[in-house]
Design a protein around this nucleic acid. Sequence first.
DNA 1: AAGACGGGGTC
DNA 2: GACCCAGTCTT
Length: 438
Amino acid sequence: MNLSSTVDTAASYFSRELLAWYRMSKRTLPWRQNREAYRVWVSEIMLQQTRVDTVIPYYERFMNRFPTLQALAEAPEPDVLKHWEGLGYYSRARNLQAGAREVMERYGGQVPDDKAAVSALKGVGPYTSGAIMSIAFNRPEPAVDGNVMRVLSRYYNRDEDIAKPSTRIGMEKLAASLIPEGAAGDFNQALMELGALVCTPRTPGCLTCPVMIHCAGRLAGRETELPIKAKAKPPKPQARLAAIIEGTGEHAGKVLIRQRPDSGLLASLWELPHVQLDEPAVKPRGRAAKLAAAAEPPVERQAEDAAELLQRLQAESGLRVVARRWHAAEEHTFSHLHWMMRVYVAELDTGASRAVWPAGLRQAGALPTEVAQQPAIIAAESAAPYSSAESSAPNATDEPDGYRWIGRNQMRDYAFPNLFGKILYDYWDATGVEEGGV
DNA sequence: AAGACGGGGTC
DNA sequence: GACCCAGTCTT
């Protein structure tokens, strides 16, 4: 071998060995049945920030319901959201469908074999466009995600902060230079497969790694300290009060839910009516604090909460809600928020005769005087609709815009974020309502 | 450059 | 509890 012209550099070694390893040991995954661009696209969107094991059942259901790009483009959006329920980052679902519709209109239903056109689709950023171009069309484009940055940081012993956008740019150049001729799709997947199976975040399996002997990070003994990544800001704590509003009369056995605005957090999903408290926001630390936060609050606190729910839901949503009893405390952490929610079972106040506070709360004497005396009397002018609905406050028979009375069986007709789905199912379990019941 | 945007798994 | 994950969009 002529070492001067065919030097087996760490780079060519890496690409060759990694590719061979992948072709030998790649996992069988639903989206690897074929390389149809639509299937690749759906999988890549679902896999953003989401584990393979989590995605698999969602992918199967989604492709069963929307087997073609056209089927997705023509589906009602709530149907698409329902199939995304629980996956999180719901704008992915909306953007995916918007992209499918765009492909129908502009490209006759065929995903274009064109980097710029694919990159311009909604929800398709640098990573996803590279993944689609390489996997579906075998174009030599880099697809750099967290896995790839981890693998390359270690293999090349690089110290750049992978949280910085500029680092991703550099990694893309590096990754592009490593793509073997004619094998972009397999190589990019090999890089990610290695990161998922061997070069894992905590305890990399260097001894089974196909490229260990030239891994600079490993040779420097730094495999566990790489990649360098700036710490994320902790989620901001928020205290909230939610109401499980039980229906009466024709709505007996049902509860009132509402639809969130069509942008922002949990856009267009359904939820329990609730309010954000101004205060608190002290995240419970330690076992004792945790226990205290989960426990039923003292009656004074419950009375304050009841008054708060009545006044604020009236003001924000036009709902006159009377808390009847404690239900549960629920915590839920988003990427940037930490919700601490106290949940009460409540009733809609549809008239003075029904406006009776629970005896325990009244006797506790903790209610503001004016509220304790006349809980139902809140200035009607102060009522503001929750989401641009111009309707008046719902009574026992109304279903104003954005609100629905539903029983357990109607849960399947609405997409709920996990936290509210859990609260509602817990509620129905506790009240003895089973599937097929109401 | 920083923040918004979910949820679940792991050690 | 802290960190991570097959990222993108908005400001």
